[in-house]
């Protein structure tokens, strides 16, 4: 399974689900490549706006989750749930459950 990420939200360690091509169809970075700072710079410099990332490669480590939970800075909080009321009881519960699922 893959997730579309805006280029601003990708980070080193994520793995591409599909080939990234330029407008002319030329290969920029191949599928399955694990992104590092250099490759992310390449994508940005070619004006790529979003990429398809392998879902499993977006799962942060347990230590990162704990840190993120404290800073309210997780992928879910950052990207997906930003249109939701963070104080709503159901939203809080759902995010907690999703976090637990990612850890397992």
């Amino acid at each position: 399974m893959s997730v579309i990420f805006s280029i601003q939200h990708i980070s080193p360690g994520m793995s591409l689900a599909d080939d990234v091509l330029d407008n002319g169809g030329r290969l920029l970075v191949a599928a399955s490549t694990t992104l590092d700072d250099k490759k992310i710079r390449v994508l940005k410099s070619w004006g790529v706006s979003e990429v398809s990332i392998r879902k499993e490669s977006t799962i942060p480590s347990t230590a990162a989750i704990t840190a993120n939970l404290q800073s309210e800075n997780t992928l879910h909080n950052m990207n997906q749930f930003q249109c939701n009321d963070p104080g709503h009881k159901a939203v809080v519960e759902f995010k907690k459950l999703l976090m637990e699922r990612e850890c397992n």
């Binding site: 399974m1 997730v3 579309i4 805006s6 879902k55 879910h76 990207n79 997906q80 749930f81 930003q82 249109c83 939701n84 009321d85 709503h88 159901a90 939203v91 759902f94 999703l98």
Partner: peptide, 15 residues
């Protein structure tokens, strides 16, 4: 929220 498939939506629609 569970990210099953896609409807083209990038965000979880506000509850």
């Amino acid at each position: 929220g569970l990210s099953i498939g896609s409807s083209g939506e990038q965000y979880v629609p506000p509850l």
